[in-house]
Design a protein around this nucleic acid. Sequence first.
DNA 1: GTCTATGCAAAGGCTTTGCAACCTA
DNA 2: TAGGTTGCAAAGCCTTTGCATAGAC
Lengths: 142, 142
Amino acid sequence: MKRTDSILQSLRQDGHRITKARKALIEALQRTHQPVAALELHARLSKSKVTADKVTVYRELKFLADIGVVHPVHLKDNIQRYELAPESGHKHHLVCTECKTVKDVEMACADLHNLERNIGKKSNFTVRGHSLEFYGLCSRCA
Amino acid sequence: MKRTDSILQSLRQDGHRITKARKALIEALQRTHQPVAALELHARLSKSKVTADKVTVYRELKFLADIGVVHPVHLKDNIQRYELAPESGHKHHLVCTECKTVKDVEMACADLHNLERNIGKKSNFTVRGHSLEFYGLCSRCA
DNA sequence: GTCTATGCAAAGGCTTTGCAACCTA
DNA sequence: TAGGTTGCAAAGCCTTTGCATAGAC
C-alpha cells in the first residue's frame, strides 16, 4: 500500500475525515522530498487543481504533526517547516546556505545515541531527543 | 581584562561608539548564561537602571552577531536567541522541554567533525557548520 | 561638529483565533 | 443529521524599516 493511502486509512480509523484539502496536502507532502513551510505548501497547492486556504494549511500541518504523521523541522531562518515522518526515527538535514535546498542525510542516529548517553551522564540531564542539521554548500553551489 | 571590557575595547578600535545601551546590553549578555531572545533581554533591561528601546535591542543584537561578538541560537520555538560567543568554536545546548532552561553542553565538536567529513564525502556536500541541540529534562524536572 | 546610535511610530511577515458555513461519514 | 473541516476576517507576535533626534568622540 502506498504511503499516502496508509496514512489516510489510519486517519479514517481514528475518526478523522478525508477531505479534498487533507488528501491534497498529504500527497503534496509526499511528493516533496524537502521540509516545507506552510506558505510554501499553500503556494504549491494554489498552482494545482485542489486549493486550500492558507489557514487550512497551517491547521492541517499542526494537526498532522500532533498525530505524528509529519515532523516539524527547524532551520536557521526560524520558519516552521514540516516533512513527512520517516518509517522510523527521524531525519537529519544538509542545508545549502546558497540555494537553500535541503537534502536528507543518510545517517543513523546510532553515533549520536552514544553521545547522548555520555552527555546525559556528565550533565545530569535526561536526553530525550536532539536536533541536528548541517549547513554548507551543495554540489551545485560549491 | 574582563570579557566585557575586551569587547568594548575592540568595538572602540573599530570606530563604534560605546553608548549606555550598548554597554548595558553586553553586560547583560555576559551575566546571562543562557541564550536570550531580544524581548527577554529588553525586559531584563527594563528592570535595571539603564533601559533601552525594544528596537535598539533587536538592532544591537543583530549588530553584535554580524561582528561575531554573539552567536545566534535557534531552538524549537522559532524565536531568535543570542549568546555571548565563546572564546573559540561554538556551544551546544541542553534544552529542558519542561522549564525551558538551556544549559551548555561540555562537549568538543571533535566527534562531530568526523561525522561532518564522512557525511560530506557520502553526500557530495561541503559541510561548513552544524547546529546541534539536545532536548530532554533537566535534573530538577526529571 | 560629525556621524553613529537611539527612540518612536508604523509596517511587514508568519502564525493563530473566532465564527459561520460547509461537507464527510 | 452531527460534528469534524474549511474559509474568511481579524488579531497576535516577533521582527524590521524610516526618519528625526540625541549623544559619543
